[in-house]
């Protein structure tokens, strides 16, 4: 009843191998699971428990603490509109209402085609560029309903709207769950070489370095 596909299972084992205690890999593996499926499914939690030598409920308990892990199906693109004070003063409410009518969804739900999930966001820490919305956590600054419509047109056409975003990014928009378009690669030679806590005698190594 394995959840991870073959490629991801290899990656998962590599991630577990980075840590002296397997359970340290719990959160990285939750990200990997979300990348594969778009959200955290039951089989995913069960396999992560197996890989990290924990119980399924520990995986569920840890995962549900974090807002970015979704335990229900999420569309390919997760749209979040900030409604905190700065954004609100500069038109977030209008933007919020516009998104609702443009996508024909209620806050917290997904469009029928499974493309968009719409959520209200707490402050996204870009108050100087208010109002803001994000798509799969990629920022769009000084947003207007028009900008939002353009982004939706791009996404529906299968094109990347990222060039309209804040980061002057010409790349593609990854689907929800993908943290980074570049896979982190840590060759064995560059591993941090962290010791198991029980093997450490005396003060932590960084104290020795400071002295």
């Amino acid at each position: 009843m394995a959840f991870f596909n073959e490629e991801n299972e290899e990656i998962a084992k590599e991630i577990v191998g980075r840590y002296p205690v397997a359970r340290s890999a719990l959160i990285p593996l939750l990200h990997l699971a979300q990348e594969q499926e778009g959200w955290i499914t039951k089989p995913a939690m069960e396999q992560i428990a197996e890989l990290t030598d924990t119980t399924s409920v520990e995986v569920l308990g840890t995962g549900t603490f974090y807002e970015m892990f979704k335990f229900h199906p999420v569309g390919k693109y997760l749209i979040k509109v900030c409604t905190n004070i700065s954004c609100q003063l500069l038109g977030a409410d209008e933007l919020f209402e516009h998104v609702k009518t443009a996508l024909d969804v209620e806050e917290g739900s997904t469009t029928e085609d499974g493309l968009f999930t719409f959520e209200e966001a707490e402050c996204v820490a870009a108050c100087t560029e208010a109002p803001c919305f994000t798509v799969n956590y990629r920022y769009f600054h000084r947003a207007t309903p028009e900008l939002f419509d353009e982004v939706v047109v791009d996404l529906k056409a299968g094109e990347s709207p990222l060039s309209k975003g804040c980061a002057d990014d010409q790349g593609v928009m990854p689907k929800h769950g993908t943290l980074s378009r570049v896979r982190q690669q840590i060759p064995k030679t560059r591993s941090a070489g962290i010791k198991h806590p029980e093997e450490i005698k005396g003060p932590p190594s960084w104290i020795e370095e400071v002295v």
Binding site: K42, M45, T55, V57, E58, L60, G61, F65, Y66
Partner: peptide, 20 residues
């Protein structure tokens, strides 16, 4: 370890994993 805190903030609760 078959019971655990689940969710966060005001919604935090003790519970088991579904069906376990």
């Amino acid at each position: 370890s078959l019971i655990h805190f689940i969710d966060r903030g005001n919604k935090t609760q003790v519970n088991t994993y579904p069906d376990q």
